[in-house]
Amino acid sequence: MTLEVAFLFLQQGVASGLIIGSVYALLALAIVVIFKTSEVPNFSQGEMVMAAAYIALYLLVFRSLPLWIVMPATILLAFAGAALFRRLILNQVARANGSPVNLVIATLGLSYVLRGFVRQTGFGDTPRSFPPVIEPESILIGQASVTTLDLVILATAIIVMAAFFWMFKYTKIGRAMRAVGMNPKAAQLVGVDLTRIHMIVWGLSGAISAVAALLISPKVLMTADMGSIVTLGFAAAIVGGFTSLPGAVVGGFLIGIIENLVGLFVASRAIVLAPFLAIMLVLVIRPQGLFGGRVEIKKV
């Protein structure tokens, strides 16, 4: 490989990596915001993405609604579904007072239900493709070739992330979320309604998943198993430290870029492996992740 080709590959890898990485970053954000406030790694995140994608497909293709209705409707439905799951199911699981892992098993239960439901409706039987939001035309940036659709994906993801960070940092609800993340009891004492905050956090996570679903669906084949893409969101969250929101975003872009560079420079078969090696490397070298805080020393 000449230097010139290597440089071309590098540009292409970084460009494609940033685009797909922006979707991973959204997914990681959706995972981390739940983990930060309720310490549950949500194993149904992938199925939430999958379900949102199928809702959008159903409304768009089978009900032939216009796109400007489909998008907000999908996001709202995902918000409501996730918030209700938290309120009706997880509240009861938490109240039942078993082992903390029970909440995780309940999210697994939801993932089975959603996947089974999509298969049951018959939409998930054959791989389907989602009509692209805009006609993709290819553009050259430097020497890297991307499409207009890619740019829309990147821009949307960045706007959603910026809005989310603004909300988390400057609004009253955002402050309440951070308070719950730091110390739920103290937050409750100063008047934060825990149930409501948990519902909103889950709802937001569902809404972000729906955005990610709308962005990624035109680029992949839709099947009932498409939720497995969230594995990369988990990888991004781990690389970023799992409790850090900026870490999740950086982790998302990093995983996207690593994946593409490995695909171009090593072998396309190694793409699948790259994120897991990245996870193991980061965890061994810096167990708390790139952006995780210092490991707390527990008192007896």
């Binding site: 699981v93 082992s99 309940a106 089975y112 959603l114 089974g116």
Partner: peptide
């Protein structure tokens, strides 16, 4: 076709009402 739905529901219900197994 119902396998996953039922299995998932069983998990959820167990976690809600029989948390210690």
């Amino acid at each position: 076709s119902y396998q996953e739905i039922i299995y998932g529901l069983i998990l959820i219900v167990f976690m809600m009402y029989a948390p210690r197994g």
